[in-house]
Design a protein around this nucleic acid. Sequence first.
DNA 1: ATGAAAGCGCTAACAA
DNA 2: TTGTTAGCGCTTTCAT
Lengths: 331, 331
Amino acid sequence: MAATIRDVARAAGVSPSTVSRALSMPDVVSPVTRDRVHRAAERLGYAPNRAARGLITGRTGNLGLVVPDLANPFFPEVVKSVQARAREADCAVLLADTDEDAAAEVSLARSLVKQVDGLVLCSPRMDEEDLRGVTGDVPVVLLNRRCGDLPAVSFDNVDGMRQAVAHLQALGHRSVAWVGGPEASWSHGERLTGLRTATERAGLRLVEVGAFPPYFEGGVAAADQVVASGVTSVVAFNDVMALGLLSRLQTRGVAVPDDLSVVGVDDIPLSGMVSPSLTTVGLAKERAGRQAVDLLLALLRDPERARDARTRRELAPQLLVRGSTGVVRTG
Amino acid sequence: MAATIRDVARAAGVSPSTVSRALSMPDVVSPVTRDRVHRAAERLGYAPNRAARGLITGRTGNLGLVVPDLANPFFPEVVKSVQARAREADCAVLLADTDEDAAAEVSLARSLVKQVDGLVLCSPRMDEEDLRGVTGDVPVVLLNRRCGDLPAVSFDNVDGMRQAVAHLQALGHRSVAWVGGPEASWSHGERLTGLRTATERAGLRLVEVGAFPPYFEGGVAAADQVVASGVTSVVAFNDVMALGLLSRLQTRGVAVPDDLSVVGVDDIPLSGMVSPSLTTVGLAKERAGRQAVDLLLALLRDPERARDARTRRELAPQLLVRGSTGVVRTG
DNA sequence: ATGAAAGCGCTAACAA
DNA sequence: TTGTTAGCGCTTTCAT
C-alpha cells in the first residue's frame, strides 16, 4: 500500500494536519518541522491521494479534452499541446473522442464534467444550446469555435481565406471553387463567409461545391465537380479533403498546379510530405492548445473572469505557399 | 451543487446505503424500493461521485494510456480504439504523450499510477527494469512491445517481414535495404531480426542502413544511402519513414516502383493517400487497442491471471500491396 | 505554530 | 431486505 499522510505524520513525529500544511502551505509551518516533514515524506515515497484531496477541496486536478476525431491529423497536434501544457500545470488530461457525433459529444462532455476541474471542447459539433448546457456546470474553453461570449481560442478563418484569395489572385486566377465540408461546423461557416467576401472584393468567380464529409474520400468525391466547373483554382475546407482532391485529380490526369491550383486549410504535417506539396492556410494548433489550457487555468483561479473580453482569443492564420498552387496557365 | 447520495436517500425515504445498493447491486434490494430509489435519483439528476467511491473501493474507474508521440499517425488510431473500448466499459482515459522521451515516460507512468486502475503502455521506450518497476504498482498491459511474461498485445513483426520479403522475392528482387529506426525500440529489433532471417532463407542480399529518427525526415535522410547501395528494393522501419524515402527519391529522380520498390510498416492512413501509394505491412491497430483494454479489464477482475499465458496476445500483420512495389526491372 | 476533531461522498461490515 | 456505523485519505476550522 502507498504511504498516507498519517504514515508521514508518525514518521516525522507531528500531526497529520501539520504534514498537510507543510506540503501545501509551506510558509505557515516552522522551517524546522517543515524540513522534517519533507524528509519523512520523501523517505516514504509519499504522494498525496488526489481523490481524497478532491473530495474536500472540490478540485480533481484533471482537465477534460473532447475532440471530434483523432484520426483527422489536425487533432493529434492539438491534443499533444494541450496535454503538454496541462502537465506543466500538474494536471492530468482525460481524453474523449466523439467520432464526429454531436450527440456522443454532449454525453461525453457531460460525463467528464464530474471528474474534471475544467473542459476544453475542441471543434465541438454540438449546437449552441447544448454547449451552454455543458458550460453551466464547469469552466469550459472552446477551441476552434466561437459561441457568444464563452471563453474561446479560435482562428481568424475570415482572414485566412482573405490570404488564400490574395495569393490566388496574384497568380492570375479569376475563378475559385470551394469544396465544402460539414455545414454544421462553425469553422466551415466562417471559411465560406470569408471566401465569399474575399472573392467578391477581388472580383473572382466563386463556385461552391459540396457538402462533402471532411475526410480524404470527401475530397476524392468532390474533384470531378470541381473540374467540371471550369475553375482554375480550388480551396478545400481542410487539408485532408485537399489531399483527396489531389489524388483524384492525378487519376483524372489533371495536372496540379499547371491545370488547377489547390489550397487546403490546417497545415497538417502530411501536407508538406506529399508531391506536389500542398499550399495551405496554416493554423497554429500547438499555440491554440496551450492557450486554451492557459485560459482554463485562469478561469479556475478566478471564475468571475468568464465574461471578460480577454477570455476570447483569436489566432492569426498564415498562408503557407507550396507546390500545389502556381500561376494560371495562359492560352 | 450536485445531488449526493443522501439527497436521494431523503427523497426516496430510505437510507443512503439502500440507495448505494439499489444503484450498484440492484438485485439485492426489493423491486419496490429499487424503483423508488431509481426514480428519485433520476429526478434529482444524481450521479455518484467517482472520487468518493474510489476512496473506499480503491477503484477510480480510470485507465491510463501512455504513448510516445501522438504526431506519429500510428498512435492516434490506437488511442482512438483504446478510448472507445474503455468508454464502453464506462472507464475514462487519462492520456499522456511522452514525446519519445524514455525518462519522461517513466515519470508520467508513475504519476498516472495513482489515479488509474490500470495502465496501457503503448510502444514504451523505457528499459525493462523501469517497465517492471511500473508494473509492480498497478495492472499494466503492454501494447506493441513484449517484455518477458508481462501482459501484452503485440504484432508478429517477424512474420510481417517474412511476408514483405516473400512479396519482393516474387517480384524478382534479389536485394533489399533496411532503413533502421530507433534501435532501442522493441519492434525495431523484431523487424530487423525477421528481415535478416527472411532474406537469408530467400537468398536475398540485405543492406542495413541507419539508424535514423523514426520521422519523415529520417526517411529523407536515408534515401541517398539506399540508392548508393544499389539495391532494387527497400523496407523502412515504418510508414512515416517510407514516405520520407518516397519524397527524396522523387526529388532525386529515382522512379518508384520502376527503379526501386519501397515497403513500409504500420499502414497509417496516409499510406493509401499518396502517389504512388505505399505497400506496407499492415498492423491491426484498432484491434490491438481494444484487446489491450479487454486484457486490462480482465486483469482488474482477476489479478491472479497476470502470469497466465492468455495475457499475451500476438496479432498477425497483413501485407498490403500497393503502388510502391513492382517487378524488378530486367536489363 | 501546532494539534484535535469534523467531515467531504461514498461503500462495506455488521446488526436488526 | 434494510438501517446503522465506521472509515477510505485528506483538508480545514477551531482550539490551544
